[in-house]
Nucleic acid binder design. Structure first.
Ligand SMILES: [Zn+2]
Ligand SMILES: [Zn+2]
Ligand SMILES: [Zn+2]
Ligand SMILES: [Zn+2]
Lengths: 159, 159
DNA sequence: TTCTTTATTTAGAATGATTATAATTTAATA
DNA sequence: TATTAAATTATAATCATTCTAAATAAAGAA
């Protein structure tokens, strides 16, 4: 596992390599993303977290930073159907996006970090002549813990 | 292949069975969906098509009808990342949602009607204790035809 | 059929997420 | 340090979607 500081450094390098500037606002935003790696935060969520440590930052800056990180393929802009975009860090060294399990009972989103689709991607290529560069796989259903009333949803990301 | 009229009848029955009323606006909307089964239309797209034949219909009614059909699991509300929800008919008799190939060059969305995920769903159950009721699988990439400048995107759904 | 009840539709206003604008500030480079 | 282009800020604007209140229409009863 690579440390937050190292990941931050790597992100900054990617930014600079593409001709973008490294600013304190961008660093603060990236730090929040790294420290809430599996939280699937909305732009507003990120904004509020960044604001705690950098109160003068504007919402538009957070939006612009998230867009930039999306362009750099550092984060993935996702939509789970609740009207807000959510931002998900792409793990370093992983070619493809991780998978999700979304609980119909509590709404919790949990990740599957393996890539289970290599074979299916070859099949898509063979049968449809479609070259896969990335994928999105979400499972909708219920965790057995949630069915027994023991929901795993945390308050922090609840609306 | 079941005819449009038969599908329409089945949809109306489902509606009435759940205590909703059958109205001309709803019928007109469903007819448009059936006649553009693979077009992944936005609410606005549907609205404009319905309006051609039923000019006095309101946008909010189309939104409400699409929401109702989503609740009835007749259509699926999807989001391909362009800021608008798109509505996709669920094929009758198919338990699970079909898969998509999304072209990075032209944006065209093509469907894979088979269900390739049965095994993976069992694996999710085994390894994570998560009962899958539905799934979403999108492949992002390029059609070989598009790479050779012969794009398959039609004008009708282009923005 | 006519009446009654209740859901639905309509048009327009309101909301909420996201993006654009213009003036000001800052980072990078010389 | 001075220059230049990019980034930030605060605010306004936009766009998709939802809400509201009055008018209308569907379903069932008489
Ligand atoms: Zn749950
Ligand atoms: Zn994730
Ligand atoms: Zn294409
Ligand atoms: Zn589809």
């Amino acid at each position: 596992m690579i440390s937050v500081e190292e990941q931050l450094k790597s992100m900054k390098q990617q930014m600079i390599a593409k001709g973008y500037k490294s600013t304190v606002q961008r660093e603060a935003t990236m730090r929040v993303l790294l420290e809430h790696e599996r939280d699937h935060m909305s732009a507003e969520d990120v904004y509020m977290r960044v604001k705690e440590r950098f109160p003068e930052i504007g919402l538009a800056t957070v939006y612009r930073t998230l867009e930039l990180l999306t362009d750099l393929h550092i984060v993935e802009k996702m939509n789970f159907g609740d009207g807000v975009a959510r931002f998900d860090l792409r793990s370093e060294g992983h070619m493809h996006m991780h998978h999700h399990m979304i609980c119909s009972i509590c709404g919790e989103v949990e990740e599957i970090q393996d890539d289970w689709l290599t074979e299916l991607e070859q099949r898509v290529q063979r049968e449809y002549g479609f070259d896969v560069s990335d994928h999105r796989l979400d499972f909708i259903g219920t965790f057995s813990s949630c069915k027994h009333g023991d929901c795993r949803r945390h308050c922090e990301t609840a609306s």
